[in-house]
Design a protein around this nucleic acid. Sequence first.
DNA 1: ATAGGATCTCTAGTCGCTATAGCTTCAAGG
DNA 2: CCTTGAAGCTATAGCGACTAGAGATCCTAT
Lengths: 145, 145
Amino acid sequence: MLSIGKLSRATGVKVPTIRYYEQIGLLPEAERSSGNQRLYGRRTQERLAFIRHARELGFALEDIRELLALADDPERSCAAADRIAGRQLAAVNARLRRLEALRDELERMLAHCSSGRIADCRVIEVLGNHALCGHEHATGDDLSA
Amino acid sequence: MLSIGKLSRATGVKVPTIRYYEQIGLLPEAERSSGNQRLYGRRTQERLAFIRHARELGFALEDIRELLALADDPERSCAAADRIAGRQLAAVNARLRRLEALRDELERMLAHCSSGRIADCRVIEVLGNHALCGHEHATGDDLSA
DNA sequence: ATAGGATCTCTAGTCGCTATAGCTTCAAGG
DNA sequence: CCTTGAAGCTATAGCGACTAGAGATCCTAT
């Protein structure tokens, strides 16, 4: 049985994050030692590794909750898992296209900037005047970069 | 002078977001009508359009705060604006590389899934066993996709 | 005059953690 | 056996960038 710290080192998931996953029910409530400290066995370690890998692939915690439920039930059809992964792939592709457009516009902005006075700065100018962009950008929900 | 709703329609920024920008000091406190409703002139409208465009390019609000300060001072050197945009470009490029790796792994997972039982599902299997991936992924701070 | 949309303030919720405070427990060294 | 310091515990608050809701007020059109 591993302490939370050892589990953290073994999986690369930080201690408070492990406790958080338990709190939101992604990990089962841990067994406790006589002194009330969490103890973990192999099963939970594997579960946590699964969660971590899925997070690295960008799955949302709610998706991971579903994937875990599927993984727990090996007789079910994996169509649902496929659907979740397919949705994730589509989201990643959408994000890729959007980021490529942003990269292009940032490069254009920077290429034209002569690093002189602000009054002549292409960066500031383009930001202030959308008509100077080469294209439309997404207007909606995906503004983080 | 525009009401907040008209400013919202004119710029594509939602009403609560405009109020939020005022609250955090990104927009100046609006003038008020006799009935205490916000009124906006051309200057604020331009400022908001600038903010929106920068957000679309993925700049953080704190970066935008700096860029706005620079835009307000046309005699200054635009080296600082260049630096901010360059940093943003580097972040976008890093994110692009990472997303491409994710896309590749998701595609591999999906390509090998025969849509049969969970027990044979490549998607679940790869998530559970990191050794099955073709590569390392980022371990750190950029897990959203 | 009134109906209904727009606006006001304030609070709380989202996601996935991360940080802090103030406590208890555990493991190693003397 | 005792001490010390690391590691653990709970609970709460904060991050970024909004979004949603409640309940009150205002403005406009008929």
